[in-house]
Simulated scan of single mutants.
Amino acid sequence: MATPDAHLPRQVPVEGYGKGFFHFAGMASSGSILALPSGIHAWAPVRAADIDAAALAEVFRQAEAIQMLIIGTGLEPWPVPEALRWRLRDVGIGVDAMPTRAAASTYNVLLDEGRAVAAALLALP
């Protein structure tokens, strides 16, 4: 995914990840990703402190199709700021944050179960 607007136009599981990359649908992407109902999108944040409502604008645009957002926070846990948690709740989205490895696995399980899930995954440093 060479440009910020690049995306795979369908929702798929995350097949793998490593230092600075993700694999999905037989493809590789460098950097962080958003896994949304509209597909897999390149995502600008590189650390948890970069995650705010503006960084999740595309999540808010697709809120009607999302019940749960899983945030992958890199290597360390990160508490979702209360203001962001409430803003997501206001549009009907539950949120959970955890290190990226656990987040990718949780996203895959929920997606496989047919749940209306999305993931915002920071690439591992």
Rank of each mutant, 00 (worst) to 15 (best):
R47K: 14
L121V: 04
W78F: 15
P99F: 04
Q67P: 02
A116W: 09
Q67N: 15
M68P: 00
I33P: 04
T3D: 15
A63P: 08
M27D: 12
A102Q: 01
V46S: 13
G26L: 09
L34G: 09
A2R: 15
V95N: 01
A48G: 10
E76D: 14
D5K: 14
T106N: 13
A83V: 11
N108Y: 00
A102D: 10
D96L: 11
A103N: 03
R10V: 03
L88R: 09
S29Y: 06
E64M: 04
A120G: 00
T73F: 08
R89I: 12
P99L: 09
S38K: 04
E113N: 06
D90W: 02
G74M: 11
P81A: 05
V117Y: 06
P81E: 07
S30V: 13
Q62R: 04
L124M: 14
A83M: 09
T106F: 00
L124N: 09
D90R: 11
T73H: 02
G18V: 07
G20E: 10
P45V: 00
D50H: 13
R61D: 11
T100P: 05
A49W: 08
A119R: 02
M68Q: 15
A6K: 08
L110S: 10
P79M: 15
V14K: 05
H23Y: 05
Q11M: 09
I93A: 07
L111W: 03
W78T: 04
S29I: 03
R85C: 04
A48I: 07
A25N: 13
S30R: 08
I71Q: 03
A83K: 05
M98C: 08
V59Q: 08
V117K: 08
A44L: 14
G92V: 08
I51M: 07
G18I: 00
Y17S: 06
Y17L: 14
A57L: 00
L34F: 05
A42K: 02
N108G: 06
A35N: 01
G20M: 07
A103F: 12
A120P: 05
H7I: 04
R101H: 14
L84N: 05
L122W: 03
A104Q: 11
A53H: 12
P81K: 01
E82M: 12
